[in-house]
């Protein structure tokens, strides 16, 4: 098993932390993992993307030019990464930031309205966990249990009371693409 994933959007959308939780969950499931941020001086509002590779064998390059799965959260990222999804791969996008829809027909294109879902959960910070839930429904590379363990590991203790709402967000994300 090898899953090469790019998550791309604006800084502040939780792109890097979504990748981080996915990577930690991979660690919990004894997979090989790399988490490679395209880091820049940007913070909120700039572009951000992260490549996460999960594999049951050693990983060579942490830098890729094609992906099994792309999660794109704004138009720039869609424009940049739509063509880089491998044929038969998955392109997940949040329609709220998209004006020109993806056009490829040789991949599975899945809109996930994570923004609305996170508003329904009354916590906009669960946005990326809704997306992660949807991703894991489509690409079951790690189990929810591992994700919850990863949240416990990566969130500072003062935020641990938010783990249940994040679990709800993951379930909501799963249900959106079922």
């Amino acid at each position: 098993m090898k899953q090469e994933i790019i998550i791309a959007g604006f800084g502040g959308q939780g792109v890097l932390s979504m990748g981080k939780i996915l990577a930690y969950a991979g660690l919990m499931n004894n997979l090989e993992v790399t988490w490679m941020p395209a880091y820049g001086p940007e913070q909120r509002g700039g572009t951000a993307n992260v490549t996460v590779i999960l594999s049951d064998s050693a990983i060579s390059s942490p830098v890729l030019d094609s992906y099994d799965t792309a999660v794109v959260l704004n138009q720039q990222s869609l424009d940049k990464f739509e063509s880089k999804v491998k044929p038969g791969g998955v392109l997940m996008y949040d329609p709220s930031g998209i004006h020109h829809l993806p056009t490829r027909t040789d991949i599975t294109v899945v809109p996930v309205d994570a923004l609305t879902a996170s508003i329904e959960l009354k916590n906009s910070k669960t946005y990326n966990m809704v997306l992660l839930g949807a991703l894991l429904e489509l690409r079951p590379v790690v189990d929810t249990e591992a994700v919850v363990k990863a949240l416990r590991k990566t969130l500072p203790e003062r935020h641990h009371h938010l783990i249940p709402v994040n679990e709800q967000a993951i379930e909501k994300g799963r249900s959106l693409v079922k």
């Binding site: 990577a23 660690l27 090989e32 993992v33 790399t34 988490w35 490679m36 941020p37 880091y39 942490p62």
Partner: peptide
């Protein structure tokens, strides 16, 4: 290099 400095792995 910045890649191996910034990337996370096991």
């Amino acid at each position: 290099d910045g890649i191996v400095g910034q990337m996370m792995e096991k």
